[in-house]
Each structure stands twice: as structure tokens, then as C-alpha cells.
Computed example of a mutant assay.
Amino acid sequence: MRLKLKASHIVAGLSGMGSILLWLILIFFNPYTDGTNLSPALNTFIMLFLPGCLALIAVFYSYRLLLLIAFGWSILPSLYLTGTPGIFAWFGVASLGYLFAYLLMKPRLRS
């Protein structure tokens, strides 16, 4: 069986994995985070990590509505982090990747 990769799947997969990777760096390798306070970790987990997982599920099942949900879910914290002068500004690129992949993915035709 030959796997056919589409541009929308590549963009969504890279955006989802990038968001998950950036969240791991933000929580575990950021020298400015407080390791004893779990509230920021939980908030960013819900607002940044979970949409990345949702985007990967959307790639696996080719379900484009999940990409739109991931974009809407992550856009506000991503825009906030885009204004920071570090690596975490890439969260905005990942969030826009969800929207771009949604626009590239063709809707499924029902038979």
C-alpha cells in the first residue's frame, strides 16, 4: 500500500508536532518558569498542547473540521506568545499552520 502525502497533511503534521515540541520546551527547559507552580503548565497544556494533539488526530483521520477547531482554540494564546522576543513566537506560526492546512485540505465527499 502506498502512502500518499498531501500538502495539507504535511503542514498540519508539522504544525501539530511543532506546537507540542514548543510546549515541552516552554515547560521543561525554560529557565524563567517556576517549577513549583502548576497553574501555568496546566493552562498552556490546555491552550497550546491539546490543539497540537487535535491537529495530529485531524491528519490521521483526514478530518478538516478538527483543524479549524485547533486553530480557533489556540489562536489567542499563540498571538500572545507571538509578541515575545524568543523561540515561543513560533506558536503563532503553528497556529496559522492549522488554518493553512484547513484551507488546503479538501472536504470529504459523502457517498
Rank of each mutant, 00 (worst) to 15 (best):
A94S: 13
V93P: 05
L24I: 05
P40Y: 06
I87R: 15
K106C: 02
L109G: 11
F45T: 05
L81C: 05
F88H: 14
W90C: 15
T82R: 11
P77Q: 12
Y63L: 08
Y80P: 06
P107Q: 06
I27E: 09
A58C: 04
N37M: 05
F45L: 08
P85N: 15
Y98E: 12
R110L: 10
S19Q: 15
L54W: 04
P77M: 10
L76E: 08
T33N: 15
L81R: 07
L96A: 15
R64V: 06
Y80G: 06
L56P: 01
T36F: 01
L56R: 11
S78E: 10
L50D: 00
P77A: 06
A94Y: 04
Y80D: 12
L21M: 09
F49H: 01
T33I: 11
S19A: 09
T82Y: 11
D34H: 01
V93F: 11
W23H: 01
I25M: 11
G83T: 12
S111Y: 08
L24D: 03
I57A: 15
R64Q: 09
F91P: 01
F60V: 12
F60K: 09
L103K: 08
Y102H: 06
S74P: 04
F100W: 14
V59M: 05
I20D: 01
I20F: 00
N43W: 00
F49G: 00
F28H: 07
W90Q: 13
L109Y: 04
G16F: 10
I27H: 11
F91T: 11
F49R: 02
A101W: 01
Y102K: 02
I10F: 07
W73N: 11
S62L: 13
L26V: 02
L26Y: 07
P107G: 04
G13Y: 04
T36I: 00
I25E: 09
G16T: 01
